[in-house]
Design a protein around this nucleic acid. Structure first.
Length: 820
RNA sequence: GCGAAAGUGGCGGAACUGGUAGACGCGCAGGACUUAGGAUCCUGUGGGGAAACCCGUCCGGGUUCGAGUCCCGGCUUUCGCACCA
C-alpha cells in the first residue's frame, strides 16, 4: 500500500493529546448526561458500589483512586454488557477524623468539610469515574443524618439499643470512647495513645443478638474469602459449657448465690481444675473474700482498674491474689481456692474460669508462679497418669485421673463429661459464646449526628418523635472535647433544654452523638433515594436496585463497616423495611498500593498524589497503570517509571486508530488474535483480573503492529470498547473519530465469534520422559497415533527414543509425551 | 501464641482445572532514524556452556508419564487478632 491510496478514517490526525481530549469529554459527559442512571426505567440494574471516602483535607489519595478505578472498570464493563449501571459516590464526612483535623487547623468543620468535598468532587471527575452526581450524598447533610437518627430509633423501638454503665475504652488524647474494633493492641487506632478503662453511661446496639445469623449467612454470600474469615474470627463463636462451682454449704448466702459459674471449652479437663479465677471486676469478688485477705484483694482490684489496658493486655506476666474463699469442684468434689487475676477478662464468658494448669498454658504459668497444684488429666500415647508435666499439654490424648472417664479420648469426653455433670451433679449446661461484643455507638464528641433521645424527669427517657427529626447538630463554635466525658453539645444551653415530647415539661437532650460507623452502615440504601425527603429509601427503587450487586472496598473494613452494615440491614429486614437481609451480594477486597517497595505514608514522604500524575500523563494512562501494576485483589508496587509503558500503549492505540485504512481486507491472523483478545479481556474483567486484561490488549497491539502496514479499521475499531473501561477518555474520542454519535459506553461490547478465534494449527509440544525435546506445528484435530508418528519422524526427537515407547501420553491440542 | 495470605529473572508480575515456566510491562544491551534525544522504531535479554545439552519457580522429601501448581516436613515475609478460657 502506498501513501496515495491510503484513506485514513479520521482525516487529520494529530498525536495523542490527553490534555486536550480529557477536558473535552468531561464536558461532553456532563452536557449529555452520559453518566446519568435512569433508576426508574433502566433495564437489568447493576449497582456498582465503592466504599465512600472520608473527605480529608489532603484530597483523594492513590489508594482511593485504585479502589474506585477498579470499581469503575467493572461498572463500565457491565454497562457495555447491557446493564443499567448505577455508580454513586458520597462522603463519610462525620467523625473524629474530620473533627480532629478541624481542631488542628482551628477551623470549624461546617466550613472545612464542604471545601474538602468540593476538592474530592473535582478529583473524582477528573479521574473519569462514571458517577451519577445527582445522587451524591454526605453523611453530614441533615437530610441524610435525619435518617441515621431514624435508624437509631428503629433499633430503640425494637429493644436493640440500650444504655448501660460500662467499662469502656477511653482514649485520653481524642477524649472519647472507642469501640472495641477501634482499639488496636490496647491503643487508639487513630492516634496510637494507650487506651484507658473508664466507666461511663453509653449507648449500645445489641449486635450480639445477631451473632449467629451474621456468622451463618457468611456461608451463602459471595465475598472474598479473606473477608469472610476475618468476620468469622471476629464473631468468634466457641462451643463449651457453663459449669457452676458451688460454694461451700456454710458459706452460701442469698447474696452470693449457690456458686460461681464459669465458661469453658474444655469440660473434659474438669478433673484437673485445681483452682478458680475471677476477673478483678467480677461482682462476687467482695463476697467471697475473707476478712484477712480483704485489704490485699482490694488493693489488687484497684491497681487493675487503674491500669490502662495496654499494660494489662500486652505484659503477659501473671499477677493475682488469693481471696481466701473456696468452691467445690463439682467433678472431684474437692475444695479448690478462689483467686482473682487480671488474665481473666470480665467481658468474655462469665468473667470466671476454672483453671486447669495441666492443660492450659495460661493456667500453667499462673499455677507455677503461685505454687498451685498441677494435675495431669490427659495423657498422650505412651504417657500415664503419673507422667510429670513440664508444660501445659493441650494436645490429643486419653483422660487419666478422671474417675469413671479414665481412658476415654479427650475429644469424646467433652460431650460425655458435660452430660454427666448436668445429669449427675446438676452443675453444667452446654453454652455457646461469642467474642463479638455489643456495639458501643455513643461518642462524647461534637461532629456527629445527635442521638435522638430526650430525658424528662417525669417521663424518663423518651425517643424524639419521628416528625421532629432531624435533631439538628447545633452550631457550637468551641467544640473541643474535654476530660469530663460529656459531649460539647451540653454547652449549648438552648439546644440542651427541650420540652418533653410526652408531657411538655422541661427536659434535656441526649448530648452524645453517634459513631461514624452508624453513618456508613446504611449509606448504600440511601443513594437511589437521595431526592426523597419523606422516606429513608424509596420502596420501589430499593426493591429494584438492592441488594448491591457488586461492592468493592478495602479489607481494613472487614470487621468494622462490613459487619455493621450487615447488622443494620438485618435489623431493617426484621422490621419489615427491607426485602433482603444481606446488603452486598458480592464483595471483593482490593489490595494495597505500596510505593517503590515501601508502604506509603506522609512521614516517609512517598505518598502518591494523583493530581500531578494525571496532569503529566492523563487520567487514562494513570488509571490504566494503576490497574496494570499488579493483581487488583492483591495491590501492587507503584513505580513512577512504570506509567511510561502504559502511555506508550495508548500512544500506539491512538496512531493505529487514527491511521487505520478502510480499503482492502483485514488480515485473517490479526482478526483471529482480535477475537481471542475480545474473549480474554471480557473473561479477565469479569474476574477482576485487570492486569492480565491490559496485558492481553498490549499483546494484541504488538501483533497488530508487527504487520508492516497500517492496520485495517476492522482490526482496530473493536479494540476501542475493549479499552474503554480502563481509558474512557481516549476511547470516547476515538469512537467519535470512527464516526459514531453515541457514547462508546452505549455501543455494547464487541461481538465475539468463536469460529474466527479458533486456531487451525497448534504447536504440539513433544516430550520424551517428561522433558521437552521438540515442537511441531500440527493440525488441531490430530489423533494420538498421528501425533506420535509425526514426532518420531523428527530426527531431533528420534535421538532420544530407542526402541518401542513404553507408554504415550497425549493431551490433544497441547502435547505428546513419549515414555521410554 | 492463634488465624489468613504469599515466596517465580535485575524489578512489577504471567502461567484459570497438574501439561512449553518467565506472557505483558519496566529496566538493561545493541542497532536504525536524527543537529540532538529521557522521542519514535527494530533486535536481544533466567543462569551455565563454543555447541549438543545441562540447571532453574524459598529449602528438604514424596505422588505422577509430567509438579510453580497436589501431599508431608521446615524456613522466610506480609497482614489481621491478640491472656477469649
Amino acid at each position: 500500500m502506498t501513501e496515495s491510496t491510503r484513506q485514513t478514517v479520521t482525516g487529520e490526525s494529530g498525536g495523542y493529546d490527553p490534555a486536550g481530549i480529557e477536558p473535552k469529554w468531561m464536558r461532553r459527559w456532563q452536557e449529555r448526561g452520559t453518566n446519568h442512571t435512569d433508576l426508574a426505567a433502566g433495564a437489568r440494574p447493576w449497582y456498582a458500589l465503592m466504599m465512600f471516602p472520608y473527605p480529608s483535607a489532603e484530597g483523594l489519595h492513590v489508594g482511593n483512586l485504585f479502589a474506585f478505578t477498579g470499581n469503575d472498570i467493572h461498572g463500565r464493563f457491565q454497562r457495555l454488557q447491557g446493564h443499567t449501571v448505577f455508580e454513586p459516590i458520597g462522603y463519610d464526612a462525620f467523625g473524629i477524623h474530620s473533627e480532629n483535623y478541624a481542631l488542628k487547623v482551628g477551623e470549624h468543620p461546617t466550613r472545612l468539610i464542604p471545601r474538602n468535598i468540593a476538592n474530592f468532587r473535582r478529583q473524582l471527575e477528573r479521574a473519569g469515574l462514571m458517577v451519577d452526581w445527582r445522587h451524591e450524598l454526605s453523611t453530614t447533610d441533615p437530610s441524610y443524618y435525619k435518617w441515621t437518627q431514624w435508624i437509631f430509633l428503629q433499633l430503640l423501638s425494637r429493644g436493640l439499643a440500650y444504655k448501660k454503665r460500662a467499662a469502656v475504652n477511653w482514649c485520653p488524647s481524642d477524649k472519647t470512647v472507642l469501640a472495641n474494633e477501634q482499639v488496636i493492641a490496647g491503643a487508639c487506632e487513630r492516634c496510637g495513645t494507650p487506651v484507658e478503662q473508664r466507666f461511663l453511661e453509653q449507648w449500645f446496639f445489641r449486635i450480639t443478638d445477631y451473632a449467629q445469623r451474621l456468622l451463618d449467612n457468611l456461608d451463602h454470600i459471595d465475598w472474598s474469602e479473606t473477608t469472610k474469615t476475618a468476620q468469622r474470627n471476629w464473631i468468634g463463636r466457641s462451643e463449651g459449657a457453663a459449669i457452676v462451682f458451688p460454694l461451700e454449704r456454710e458459706r452460701r448466702t442469698p447474696n452470693r448465690g449457690e456458686g460461681i459459674e464459669v465458661f469453658t471449652t474444655r469440660p473434659d479437663t474438669i478433673f484437673g481444675a485445681t483452682y478458680l479465677v475471677l476477673a478483678p471486676e467480677h461482682p462476687i469478688v467482695a463476697d467471697v473474700t475473707t476478712n484477712d485477705r480483704r485489704a490485699e484483694v482490694e488493693a489488687y482490684r484497684d491497681s487493675a482498674a487503674k491500669q490502662d489496658l495496654i499494660t494489662r493486655k500486652v505484659s503477659r506476666e501473671k499477677t493475682g491474689v488469693f481471696t481466701g474463699g473456696y468452691v467445690i469442684n463439682p467433678a472431684t468434689r474437692q475444695r479448690i481456692p478462689i483467686w482473682v487475676a487480671d488474665y481473666v477478662l470480665m467481658d468474655y464468658g462469665t468473667g470466671a474460669i476454672m483453671a486447669v494448669p495441666g492443660h492450659d498454658e495460661r493456667d500453667f504459668e499462673f499455677a507455677s508462679a503461685f505454687g498451685l497444684p498441677i494435675v495431669r488429666v490427659v495423657a498422650a500415647e505412651g504417657e500415664g497418669s503419673g507422667t510429670p508435666l513440664a508444660e501445659a499439654y493441650t494436645g490429643e490424648g486419653r483422660l487419666v485421673n478422671s474417675g469413671e472417664f479414665d481412658g476415654m479420648p479427650a475429644s469424646e469426653a467433652v460431650k460425655a463429661v458435660t452430660l454427666w455433670l448436668a445429669k449427675e451433679r446438676k452443675a453444667a449446661r452446654p453454652v455457646v459464646n461469642y467474642r463479638l461484643h455489643d456495639w458501643c455507638i455513643s461518642r462524647q464528641r461534637y461532629w456527629g449526628p445527635p442521638i435522638p433521645v430526650i430525658y424528662c424527669d417525669k417521663c424518663g427517657m423518651q425517643p424524639v418523635p419521628e416528625k421532629d427529626l432531624p435533631v439538628l447538630l447545633p452550631p457550637v463554635e468551641d467544640f473541643r472535647p474535654d476530660d469530663t466525658g460529656i459531649s460539647p453539645l451540653a454547652r449549648h444551653e438552648e439546644w440542651y433544654h427541650v420540652p418533653c415530647p410526652e408531657c411538655g415539661g422541661s427536659a434535656r437532650r441526649e448530648t452524645d452523638v453517634s459513631d461514624t460507623f452508624l453513618d456508613s452502615a446504611w449509606y448504600f440504601l440511601r443513594y437511589p433515594s437521595t431526592d426523597r425527603d419523606d422516606v429513608p429509601f424509596d420502596p420501589a427503587l430499593t426493591k429494584k436496585w438492592l441488594p448491591v450487586h457488586s461492592y468493592i472496598g478495602g479489607n481494613e473494613h472487614a470487621v468494622l463497616h462490613l459487619l455493621y452494615a450487615r447488622f443494620i440491614t438485618m435489623v431493617l429486614h426484621d422490621a419489615g423495611r427491607l426485602h433482603f437481609e444481606e446488603p452486598f451480594k458480592r464483595f471483593r477486597a482490593h489490595g494495597l498500593i505500596i510505593r517503590e517497595g515501601a508502604k506509603m505514608s506522609k512521614s516517609r514522604g512517598n505518598v502518591v498524589i494523583p493530581d500531578q500524575y494525571i496532569e503529566q500523563w492523563g487520567a487514562d494512562a494513570f488509571r490504566t497503570y494503576l490497574m496494570f501494576l499488579g493483581p487488583f485483589e492483591e495491590g501492587g508496587d507503584f513505580r513512577d517509571r512504570g506509567i511510561s509503558g502504559v502511555k506508550r500503549f495508548l500512544d500506539r492505540l491512538w496512531s493505529s486508530a487514527t491511521e487505520a485504512r478502510t480499503d482492502g481486507e483485514p488480515d485473517r491472523e490479526v482478526m483471529r488474535k482480535l477475537h481471542q483478545t475480545i474473549r480474554k479481556v471480557g473473561d479477565d474483567i469479569r474476574r477482576l483480573s485487570y492486569n492480565t486484561a491490559i496485558a492481553a490488549m498490549m499483546e494484541y497491539m504488538n501483533v497488530l503492529r508487527a504487520h508492516e502496514r497500517s492496520p485495517h479499521r476492522e482490526e482496530v475499531e473493536p479494540l476501542v470498547p475493549l479499552v474503554s473501561p480502563f481509558a474512557p477518555f481516549i476511547a470516547e474520542e476515538l469512537w467519535e473519530r470512527f464516526g459514531h454519535e453515541e457514547s462508546v459506553f452505549d455501543s455494547g461490547w464487541p461481538g465475539f465469534d468463536p469460529s474466527l478465534a479458533a486456531e487451525e494449527t497448534i504447536e504440539l509440544v513433544v516430550q520424551v520422559n517428561g522433558k521437552v525435546r521438540g515442537k511441531l506445528r500440527v493440525l488441531v484435530a490430530l489423533t494420538q497415533d498421528e501425533a506420535v508418528a509425526a514426532a518420531l519422524a523428527e530426527p531431533g526427537i528420534l535421538r532420544f527414543v530407542s526402541g518401542t515407547p513404553k507408554k504415550v501420553v497425549y493431551v490433544a491440542g497441547r502435547l505428546v509425551n513419549i515414555v521410554v
